[in-house]
């Protein structure tokens, strides 16, 4: 298959994307959304689709280190990029600290929005967030219909406070 270098307009494109350390080289329709590429081509269905217009945040993944809505990106836009999805968080089958905190704080019910929250949280450095309002601003890019956000905030506060100040942090839970 000859590689399409995008140097002439085409409805089919060749892309190369690394997802969770695995390299994918595919010819895909130019219109294929990144969310569908991750789910249908890479077969990673932990990234959920909730609105397909960039509001609910369920489809959030990490693109070259930054959180982004995979429903509002074309797969071709991330050609050459490195993507991380929720399947990449756990190590050796163990939950990462944020996953563990969600578990311990009952911060998920149906679990559909959860991967999006986790990926946004994974993408940022707690040090960049001064207080609870900053945290709300970060998480307000995600809709959860089950928890009223109470236990999500609690879970995040438990991890971030530990990361910031071992003896009582600034994020109220």
């Amino acid at each position: 298959m000859e590689r399409q270098d995008h140097d002439s307009p085409s409805a089919q494109v060749d892309i190369e994307v690394t997802i969770n350390g695995e390299r994918f080289r595919n010819r895909v329709p130019a219109r294929l959304l990144l969310s569908d590429f991750i789910r249908d081509v890479a077969g990673l269905t932990g990234t959920h689709v909730g609105c397909e217009h960039g509001v609910c945040g369920a489809c959030t993944v990490i693109v070259d280190g930054d959180a982004a809505r995979s429903c509002s990106l074309l797969a071709v836009q991330v050609d050459g990029c490195t993507i991380r999805t929720v399947e990449d968080l756990a190590t050796d089958g163990g939950l990462c600290p944020m996953q563990q905190a969600f578990h311990e704080n009952l911060a998920l019910q149906c679990g559909f929005c959860t991967p999006g929250f986790l990926m946004t949280l994974e993408s940022v450095d707690p040090q960049d967030f001064a207080d609870a309002d900053d945290l709300f601003a970060l998480l307000s890019g995600h809709l959860c219909r089950c928890t009223g956000y109470q236990n999500i905030i609690k879970a995040v506060a438990s991890v971030w406070n530990e990361a910031i100040e071992p003896h009582g942090g600034r994020f109220q839970s």
């Binding site: 995008h6 002439s8 307009p9 085409s10 409805a11 494109v13 219109r31």
Partner: peptide, 25 residues
């Protein structure tokens, strides 16, 4: 909620972009 089909073009220069935009109104 999927986009309609289109041609994708990633020009290598601003002038290439301008040319493409001029060619395809």
């Amino acid at each position: 909620m999927k986009p309609a089909s289109f041609d994708y073009y990633r020009p290598s220069s601003v002038s290439g972009a301008v040319q493409a935009l001029a060619d395809s109104p």
